[in-house]
Design a protein around this nucleic acid. Sequence first.
DNA 1: CAATAATCATCAGTATACCGCCTTTTATTA
DNA 2: TAATAAAAGGCGGTATACTGATGATTATTG
Lengths: 186, 186
Amino acid sequence: MAKSAKTDGTRKTKAVVASPSEPNPELQQLIERLPLWKRPGYLIRRLHQVHYALFFEECEGFGITPVQYGLLTILSGNPDSDQISLAQALGIDRTNVADVLSRLAQRGLVERTRSTEDKRMVLARLTGEGEKLVAAMHPAMSRAQERLLDTLGDKEREAFLSTLIKLLEANNKYGRAALATAKFGD
Amino acid sequence: MAKSAKTDGTRKTKAVVASPSEPNPELQQLIERLPLWKRPGYLIRRLHQVHYALFFEECEGFGITPVQYGLLTILSGNPDSDQISLAQALGIDRTNVADVLSRLAQRGLVERTRSTEDKRMVLARLTGEGEKLVAAMHPAMSRAQERLLDTLGDKEREAFLSTLIKLLEANNKYGRAALATAKFGD
DNA sequence: CAATAATCATCAGTATACCGCCTTTTATTA
DNA sequence: TAATAAAAGGCGGTATACTGATGATTATTG
């Protein structure tokens, strides 16, 4: 590269990077044995980003992120949940739940109260407005999910989803955000 | 829930959240048509987190994140790349590249110089230390990738990877971090 | 060649996503 | 029951990941 700036340019079609300096051949070899696009972790990160982009495209105007909608979804079925339960139901860190909740509360979609039974716990539930938003946004969220796998035939889609679930079941234990449910088994 | 605190407790085995207040039945129905674990975007987010956790477990001690290692990988094959080329090769936002580079530079793994040909550009390359680290960390990174798909048989693993790539090719255009390569086609 | 447009980088701001440490409250146990 | 342990949440810190705005430099065009 290092050529840059052409109006037609769409540098998207060019080779990645043309390098003035030569790369280290030993490293080169090492990297070519497992390039980025053969690393599942890398591919999954990219697909995750793609989903975010699709989600925002479909849900533009609602101002809600995928994680926020996920949390609202949990709250739809489980009013007055404490933050750790929410974290384990959604698969995110508990400190993150507090962050997300406070943003949702600020927008009047969620309300939080101290439990009287156990004064350590903060219980969260949807407000009326929160419930309305969950319902109103559902079709758009659903479209984002569909578009992601749009290019797959029925069989491949089924296989992909079932592999995803299998991988999550096998590896659920890793990280601070492990799921607490037998959800995948049902 | 709302019971909490038992020593044996491992609340991980309990039902998600038992709710004192009753959920809204209409919402309930809506949500049950597309629960979290049927949303591909959600599953992918979770698997992404799992990979992060596995990566950190394997690469503990190096203090390098998956994205940082990805960037170092690109630099291994393409010294003196500008930030936008790096962004498009790695599939992350250009502002993010600058952030990651500055952290890598701070640790002496990368050095940056202004291009003399085009004074807008900042070119980045690995230092000697950076090259050493890429080589030293490669086995651990590789193990993290393998462990993620460990539970799959050869056929399912191949199918999964090829579906991932197909999905990325079909959706690459979305988001600010689109890839600039014909990498997937090669 | 001057005005305009495109490109590259930077900055400020927002939202995840996590870790480790701390305080408060509850549960266990000595 | 007093000492100890465990649980829930809060706080500070770090690292992605992105948007939108701005400024500097280069390219294009009238």
